[in-house]
């Protein structure tokens, strides 16, 4: 077996050579993950904001459920989505199993509770500060939610980032519903698992390096945005 440094050198060569397989896998991973996070934000942000800013019976229970769902085991989510999409499942006729769409659905199920739960906390804290002023101005429910989401926008970027981190690093659910089919549903994480088991460590490590680099770039970008927001007292 090659040394770690030898494998790393080969992995870097693959990246620098802009290897077609590598690019395809990265592209699919980004498409699936970004789409899932976008859908999760579209659902989770308003749900979290509503739970965080409205008083209604069962609000505490809703918050507890959201928090609990943050820890959903990916393989369980994968199994449930698999059962829903399989030929015998209620969504079987759609023929989505082993497609990127199936992986988007699984990741959305995993990420939405994270976005909703963290949004609830952020919005609740902000609403505590704004509540009397909003009440004095008689801000309506929709305006209130929109205002809170807008004013918490920089904190919510971090929330979206947490969702992205969870989705992009996820392997259990997408491998069950996607099947890790070459050129169809092969993601970075599933490829790393597969190629490692096959002994193709160069490609696995190359993907690992790209995954880490992506996490670094996205984090740095969000931190820079937040820093500018803090300077403007927008956080």
């Amino acid at each position: 077996m090659e040394s770690f440094w030898g494998i790393l050198a080969d992995a870097m060569s693959l990246i620098l050579a802009w290897d077609a397989d590598l690019i395809e896998i990265i592209g699919l991973s980004l498409r699936v993950t970004v789409t899932a996070v976008a859908i999760a934000c579209a659902i989770g942000l308003p749900v979290g904001a509503a739970v965080g800013s409205f008083a209604f019976p069962g609000r505490t229970a809703a918050a507890v459920i959201l928090n609990s769902l943050m820890g959903l085991p990916p393989v369980v989510v994968g199994l449930i989505v698999y059962l829903m999409l399989s030929a015998a499942g209620p969504l079987g006729p759609l023929g989505l199993l082993y497609t990127p769409t199936a992986m988007i659905i699984a990741q959305t199920v995993l990420v939405t509770p994270i976005v909703a739960a963290l949004t609830r906390q952020v919005v609740e804290d902000l609403h505590r500060e704004y509540a009397e002023q909003f009440s004095s101005l008689q801000v309506g429910p929709l305006d209130r939610v929109l205002a809170l989401l807008w004013d918490a926008r920089y904190s919510l970027l971090t929330v979206a980032l947490a969702g992205f981190g969870r989705a992009v690093a996820e392997v259990g659910a997408v491998i069950i519903v996607g099947g890790n089919i070459n050129h169809v549903t092969r993601m970075m994480t599933t490829t790393i698992a597969l190629e490692t088991s096959k002994g193709n460590l160069q490609l696995a490590l190359a993907l690992g390096v790209v995954l880490l680099a992506m996490a670094l770039v996205v984090n740095a970008g969000v931190m820079a945005l937040r820093a500018s927001a803090v300077r403007a007292a927008y956080v």
Binding site: E129, S136, A147, A233
Partner: peptide, 26 residues
């Protein structure tokens, strides 16, 4: 009626946007 609190509650927006918000909701 309007109310001003001991600690001003201002939105995380510009001066103008704070005024605009209050007027818009009214």
């Amino acid at each position: 009626q309007s109310m001003v609190f001991q600690r001003p509650v201002l939105l995380r927006r510009s001066v103008l946007a704070n005024l605009r918000f209050a007027l818009a909701v009214r």
